[in-house]
Each structure stands twice: as structure tokens, then as C-alpha cells.
């Protein structure tokens, strides 16, 4: 194991995981709102604290994780979360993308009878800004419209998301992470370019 894998995980695993979960639950039930992850975690590069905390909160031996973050980050995740590392994104329950995210269509979609058995994509982006500008979001969890500006996703992402949403109830759910901030889009959310 490399030295980077020995950098600490969650300082207080019980309280930090609870706080991170509430941030993600809140983000997922109010798509487009940006929440701050309360845990103080310093993962190896290129992982950002929010993505690392979300995975340490949700991933374990039952959930294969695929990541493009390189061997240091993968070893750190496997050590602290105890999760198996998938060799390809098609086999993973959590897909952590630090670079350009893999096509949503190749990830586990679930079935019509068991749509909950789908992958969750955790995408690291450059910045998240809620409130004004950027995407117009509609769907469950949103009273009228939420605005979310996301910097650092491929330009054709909204088209890919439209195809993901059209497959409902099957489909991938998205967690966006930038620094210590997290936002989420469940498969029900409609994105319109602002």
C-alpha cells in the first residue's frame, strides 16, 4: 500500500457519515440545491473532500466502486470504505468520475421491476452554484424551478441526461461534487439549458 492510502478517512465515522448522508439526502430530495458536506476529510488527489466523504458514507463491501481517479485514490477508497474495486464502470454500484464521466447508458440501469438496482454516478466538477443562471431544473422535489450552474461537465451532458430520464423508472442517479459542496439529480429531474 502506498503512503497516500494511509491518509485518514472520516475523523468521526458515525457522526460524519450521518452528517454526510443528510447532506446527500437533502440534495437528492431537493434537486439543484447545493449542500456542504460537514466532514473534514483529506483524500489523496484528485479526489475532492465531498466525493470522498459521500463514498465513505455510502460504499462498503456490498457495493463495487469504479473510479478513474488513479491507483492512490482507488487504494484509499478500498482501504477506508472496504469496497471492492470494479474493473469497468458497467459492473459498479458507484461510479466516481474525476475526469469526463462515462456514458450514462453503459452504467447499471436497473430493471423495470427493480429500478433501484441502478448505479449512482458521482461526478467531480469544477464548481457548483445554485440560485441563478445555468440549468433550469424541474421535477419531484422542486416547487417550481431550481437553477443550478455546473462548471466542468461535457457540453453534451444535458442530451445524455435526457435519454437517461426518458428510460424512467430505470436510470442512473447523479451526485455532483465540487470541493466540499454536493448537489444531486435523481433520474426524475428534467434539465433545460438556461
Amino acid at each position: 500500500m502506498r503512503a497516500a492510502a494511509l491518509s485518514p478517512g472520516l475523523a468521526d465515522p458515525v457522526a460524519d457519515a450521518q452528517g454526510c448522508f443528510r447532506a446527500v439526502l437533502d440534495a437528492m430530495s431537493r434537486p439543484g440545491s447545493v449542500r456542504r458536506v460537514p466532514a473534514d476529510v483529506r483524500p489523496p488527489a484528485p479526489l475532492v473532500p465531498a466525493a470522498a466523504a459521500v463514498l465513505l458514507t455510502l460504499a462498503d463491501a456490498a457495493t463495487p466502486v469504479w473510479t478513474d481517479a488513479g491507483p492512490d485514490a482507488a487504494a484509499w477508497l478500498a482501504f477506508h470504505a472496504g469496497c471492492p474495486l470494479a474493473t469497468s464502470p458497467e459492473d459498479a454500484a458507484f461510479v466516481l468520475a474525476c475526469g469526463s464521466p462515462p456514458s450514462l447508458g453503459v452504467l447499471v440501469q436497473g430493471t423495470d421491476e427493480e429500478p433501484h438496482r441502478s448505479a449512482t454516478l458521482i461526478a467531480q466538477v469544477a464548481a457548483l452554484e445554485a440560485g441563478s443562471g445555468g440549468w433550469r431544473l424541474r421535477g419531484p422535489g422542486i416547487e417550481a424551478e431550481h437553477r443550478l450552474r455546473v462548471s466542468g461537465l461535457p457540453s453534451d451532458f444535458t442530451a445524455r441526461w435526457g435519454a437517461n430520464r426518458a428510460a424512467f423508472p430505470r436510470g442512473v442517479d447523479l451526485v455532483l461534487c465540487a470541493g466540499r459542496e454536493v448537489a444531486a439529480l435523481p433520474r426524475t429531474t428534467a434539465i433545460e439549458e438556461g
Partner: peptide
């Protein structure tokens, strides 16, 4: 157990 329930809750919210 909490992690397993938390994963289920997030998927439940995503598929109302």
C-alpha cells in the same frame, strides 16, 4: 445496517 438503509433511502427518493 445504516449504510444499507441509507442507500435504499436515496434510491427510494430517486424513484418516488
Amino acid at each position: 445496517t445504516k449504510r444499507m438503509i441509507r442507500r435504499a433511502l436515496l434510491k427510494a427518493v430517486a424513484i418516488p
